[in-house]
Amino acid sequence: MTIESPEIQSASTGRVRVALAEDDWTTTLQQRHWYRCWAWRSAGSEVAGIARGLAAETLADWRLGPMSDDVKLCVSELVGNALLHGQSDPASHDAWSTPLSLGLRYFPSTCLMVEVGDSSVAPPLWTWLDPEIDPGEALFADGRGLMILREIADRVWWRCHPGAGKTVYARLDTPRYFEAPVCGEHA
């Protein structure tokens, strides 16, 4: 994976933090797709569980059950990151003036996209571990979420909305979750 961004070195923890690549995918949105979204003006820790439940219900409605575990994990990690790092001003009483949002987009037979928006314009940071360091020690506090997404999702990126926060996207390609019928068999 090529990352074109400045690195943030943390020698004491044996890890490098790299800004996630920003991308513009407006042409993709012109394709036919199904979409559901939710927004929370006041976001507490219970939102992650609610978001996972909404994602599971949506996948059941769209008959994408085999994707459910991976999508719920993506939703958990992205919503958790938004709750932890996504406030524009954590000291402000009105830090969530831009809502926390969750969107699911299904492009039939191609992919499902999970998107989570928050009020911060700061880029999400990948964590890259020094191979000489024990991952358990280097990741005790943070840095695991996007590493998990990197393993589950086929692509992860973000988009800044100046003055209105950002959205982080995870794409899961649907063909890898469904076995193609053998010639002569009916699906």
Rank of each mutant, 00 (worst) to 15 (best):
A43D: 03
L149F: 01
A82D: 09
L54S: 12
P123S: 03
F107Q: 06
L102E: 02
E151R: 00
G86K: 03
E132W: 13
L64F: 14
R105T: 15
Y106P: 05
P123W: 03
A138C: 11
W96K: 06
S88W: 02
D154P: 05
P108V: 03
A122E: 14
L104N: 14
S101L: 13
K72G: 06
L64M: 13
S120T: 14
L102Y: 10
L102P: 07
I50F: 15
D134F: 13
E151I: 00
H33P: 10
H85L: 01
G117F: 15
H85W: 07
G49D: 12
R159A: 11
L100F: 10
R41V: 15
L78K: 03
A39Y: 05
S119V: 06
A43M: 05
A56N: 12
S88D: 04
F140M: 09
A56E: 14
D154R: 06
A55T: 07
R36I: 00
R36N: 02
E46R: 09
I152L: 13
V114P: 04
L59N: 07
H93N: 10
P90K: 04
L125C: 07
L139G: 04
P108M: 02
W34G: 01
D94T: 01
G136R: 10
P124C: 04
D118P: 00
L139T: 02
S42Q: 05
S42K: 06
S101A: 12
I50M: 11
P135L: 03
L54V: 11
L139K: 07
T58R: 13
R105Y: 15
V116F: 14
A56I: 12
L64T: 02
R105M: 15
F107I: 12
